[in-house]
Design a protein around this nucleic acid. Structure first.
Lengths: 219, 219
DNA sequence: CGTACAAGTCAACGATCGTTGACATATGGG
DNA sequence: CCCATATGTCAACGATCGTTGACTTGTACG
């Protein structure tokens, strides 16, 4: 909410001179980076502020000072995690290919610096009563809503939810087990089946009580 | 591993006489029930043994005594959570209908006593470095492996993983957001799309390098 | 130069964590 | 009846939790 509440940048930009030992913005960024990493590897309750602070080479007290609380820090990360609709950057018809590329490990997601992964971040704390609702809020705002409006046709909200669920679900399997591992043939098979399943949700919804054309995947 | 290590049933069955104030089996069961509930509502790290004990009307020390540790208690629950292959009870072709019934809320899952839900249980602690590997182990043993062998055709393991991912993924969306809510028409649409997506994975895999028919989602 | 204030340090708070060992009590077989 | 013991109670351990307030130090402006 209030970014510059307890802390405000004091002077104008220093640009590039004598790099000072004290830089609020840089410290803030280091905390955020460390926190993103740790929240991607452990549940919300399982991550301690001292771990984050140690990783960021920062005093633990600064977390409460800069972000109000551990929850505030988490909320700020969640607000950026699903942001900018990167999945929809190339339009809806390119989404399956992009999703598959991400899920099968050929990552082009923007920020994997230091073990951070938005999908892991989401899954790690989805079970927490504190962090869960926060994640739900921003997942809705930054992913589900844009996706829903990108989908044409009827029942777009339901289809968007199922589509998002497929992405998340396969991320679970990829993370929890060691899926899509070695064999390139298996990897190709995964890609194929996954593409088909995703296409099912992206294709405009058909009539529930029309001619009821059978849509078996293979004739 | 060693159930009766520190605790062994002392005497033969007492069946039905004068119900005693001390019953190790009943106490054990009460702890398990309470723990299942709490582990379905909070992450592994977020659940305290004192909460569980209070809910079970039991001294917190008994948890360590009966299950060795909090982790031992969790492991025992995980060992039963995905068990008995209930999803495959009616055969593989009945799985989509069963999954959809469960996911859309018309539950016929065996045990929903007291807020316990195997899918919530799985998701709540999947992010924990302690509980995650335990969940992965039993999910593999009790769900993915049977499902994989139930699926015919090639690449069954990949298809099983994707199928499991779809189930889990839609469970995420149902839990995290309030999906499949009010409108019966929307519910029907969800059911339809979901059924189609599931069928895609269940259907036997096709040739990867055949006539290379273009697979754009919409022409 | 010196002073005002931002930025960071430090120690400690009260709370809760999982676990342990000593102790009390109920229970059933001799 | 009485005692061995299965069962449960209790208090406390050391560790870690998130957070706070007072304090020190760096930095930039007058």
């Amino acid at each position: 909410m209030n970014r510059t509440d307890p802390v405000a940048t004091p002077a104008g930009r220093r640009s590039a001179k004598s790099l000072p030992q004290r830089d609020a913005d840089a410290t803030r960024s280091r905390i955020l980076e460390a926190a993103k990493k740790h929240f991607s590897q452990n549940s919300y309750e399982g991550v301690g502020v001292r771990e984050i602070a140690a990783d960021a080479a920062v005093d633990p007290a600064l977390i409460s000072r800069y972000f109000g609380s551990k929850e505030g820090l988490f909320r700020e990360i969640a607000g950026q995690a699903f942001g900018a609709g990167k999945f929809l950057a190339d339009g809806i018809e390119e989404l399956p290919a992009r999703v598959i590329r991400i899920l099968t490990g050929e990552v082009d997601l923007g920020d994997w610096r230091g073990g951070y992964d938005p999908l892991r971040f989401l899954l790690s704390s989805i079970g927490s009563p504190t962090a869960g609702p926060i994640l739900a809020k921003y997942l809705e705002r930054d992913f589900l809503a844009p996706l829903s409006s990108s989908l044409g046709g009827r029942n777009r909200r339901e289809r968007a939810a199922i589509l998002a669920g497929q992405i998340i679900g396969f991320a679970v399997m990829r993370i929890v087990l060691s899926i899509s591992g070695s064999d390139p043939a298996e990897k190709a098979a995964s890609r194929r089946v996954l593409a088909e399943a995703l296409a099912t949700c992206i294709a405009p919804d058909r009539e529930p009580n029309g001619k009821s054309r059978s849509r078996k995947p293979a004739g």
